[in-house]
């Protein structure tokens, strides 16, 4: 049993460009390098000796890695080291990707958000992370940069198993891309925890819907979950149950039941699996309802 210790001994590298970072990472053994962005998780992992890198590569000084930029097609590219505070403060994010801003503000407090980064929250590959569900339902892809260049991977496919990502050992997460949201779409993220703030998520549910005003129905829906399976996950069968339906109580109940079947929440000292399932059931319905209300509140809105 390890008590919280001082940091382990490591060498420090402070690259200033992304190519320097990829060069530092290239051909290193697993665990040899630690990429330090905000550090809110990584510092603790080192203090608990869960990670003892030879070299810490600090990302705070990498030029341009923290950008938040609109693309010509209306999509958004967010650099991996953009802080949660920067996301929450970005008018672009608040106006066009409200779901992301909403999820960001449910993480930690001011001090943590001032340093924690979107890349850290995603690349940690933890099932309890709050941004991946929101980003998944927004249709995010992640940009992986390696010595041979960059590639994009859908976030849905980024978490093959608990605490692991689809990145190759010499690749680093450089950016997150979000497509332009469809007109009449909106989402919400509901995080359940025991207090009002600061807690680890017991269950998190992101719902993103595209509203068909003519049919008064859900044209498209995406659902994603934190702490409901070994990885953050989409619930595609549950989405299929609701797609094209009016969000009646029965339709929402059927969708939520399907989500309960698809997810596999675990029992731990934090919460029982059975309780998490109840949360999934309740919060799925609530999140979809709220997303529909939001989408209807901005009919025909071309974001």
């Amino acid at each position: 049993m390890t008590y919280l210790r001082r940091l382990p001994k490591f060498a420090y590298a402070g690259p200033t460009t992304l190519s320097e970072v990829t060069a530092l990472v290239a051909d290193t053994a697993p665990g040899e390098i630690l990429l330090l962005a905000g550090g809110t998780d990584a510092i603790l992992q080192m203090r608990r000796r869960e990670r003892t890198p030879k070299t810490v590569v600090g990302l705070k000084g990498v030029a341009g890695l923290d950008g938040i930029a609109e693309e010509s097609d209306g999509g958004l590219t967010i650099g991996a080291t953009a802080t949660l505070a920067a996301l929450a403060a970005s008018p672009l994010v608040r106006r066009r990707f409200g779901l992301l801003a909403e999820a960001v503000l449910q993480i930690g407090g001011v001090e943590l958000r001032n340093v924690a980064t979107i890349g850290g929250n995603v690349a940690g590959a933890l099932p309890c992370a709050d941004l991946p569900p929101a980003l998944m339902t927004l249709g995010a892809k992640v940009k992986l940069a390696g010595p041979k260049g960059a590639r994009w991977v859908a976030l849905d496919e980024f978490f093959p198993e608990f605490s692991r990502t689809a990145a190759q050992p010499n690749e680093i997460l450089a950016a997150i891309g979000l497509p332009k949201p469809a007109p009449g779409s909106a989402g919400t993220y509901l995080k359940f925890h025991d207090r009002h703030s600061m807690d680890m998520t017991v269950v998190g549910v992101a719902a993103f819907v595209t509203w068909d005003a003519k049919k008064k129905a859900v044209a498209e829906v995406r659902l994603a979950y934190a702490n409901s399976a070994p990885t953050v996950m989409r619930a595609r069968q549950a989405e299929a149950v609701l797609k094209g339906q009016a969000p009646s109580d029965d339709a929402l109940a059927a969708c939520a039941e399907e989500a309960c079947k698809e997810t596999k929440p675990r029992t731990s000292w934090r919460a029982n699996g059975a309780y998490r399932l109840e949360l999934i059931r309740a919060l799925t319905k609530r999140a979809i309802r709220r997303a529909c209300e939001k989408a209807q509140a901005r009919p025909g809105d071309a974001p």
Binding site: Y12, G58, K60, V110, E111, L112, N114, V115
Partner: peptide, 19 residues
């Protein structure tokens, strides 16, 4: 352990001095 770094409040326990 909160301090201001470039005007922003941060937890100095989670921040490397070198950074």
């Amino acid at each position: 352990c909160t301090v201001l770094i470039d005007g922003k409040a941060v937890n100095s326990c989670l921040y490397l001095a070198i950074e």
